[in-house]
Amino acid sequence: MSAPPDTREVILEARELTREFDGVKALDRFSFQLHRGEVLGLLGANGAGKTTAMNCLLGLTLPTGGDLFAFGLELQRHRIQILQRSNFSSAYTALPGNLLVGQNLLVFAKIYGVKDPKAKIAELMELLEISHLSKRVTGQLSAGESTRVNLVKAFLNDPELLMLDEPTASLDPDIADKVRKVVRKVQRERNIGILYTSHNMRDIEEVCDRVIFLHKGRIVCEGTPAQILARSSSSSLEDVFIKIARDGEIVDEA
């Protein structure tokens, strides 16, 4: 029996999204919907198309085909309005390392038009247990501290849509666990829709409501983690990931 349709508002939608690089399709007619309050995991091996998809969704790369909508608005035409209601954090970007943490966060709070920036920053830093870092130089933070500072930046504007690109990459298990818990807590409290990429299957199992597996730019598998496991004979999502990365499909799908 198939799952009932999700009736929550669609806040992000890709229709037949295609992106070619020199004749090679990094994304091939990729379609999905993200609902308000849902955490959608985007999975796949290196080169599967996750980063390209994320870049298209952020407006950093223009698709060669298909359409993108957020909050019902066409992304390219309403980019600024959409970005005001969204935010992004990646393990691969950084806030300027030569500024103090508090200075960096203040700049972004002003960019996002936060009404009482200092109070908001203090509130979020407390939530992420990094209030003591405010006067520290950003470039001298540990990977875990840096990730949490990036998350404060990502929550500054109370986003309705959040894109997290491998937020737990390079974190030790303890810090990764804290990050997952705080992401889930804030997401539930504020009913945020999150698009989440990760290579860490623990992340996916704990954080994501639904996942999409990409292989060579196409969706090869989609569903809740439990549904995907039920469809394969694999005992873990990690095994499913490996099968898809090697064979391009869940070969023993029922």
Binding site: L58, Q81, A94, L95, P96, I111
Partner: peptide, 12 residues
């Protein structure tokens, strides 16, 4: 400072 992406994905 690898900040360019943060600026380009902000409403700027």
């Amino acid at each position: 400072t690898r900040n360019l992406l943060n600026v380009f994905v902000a409403p700027v």
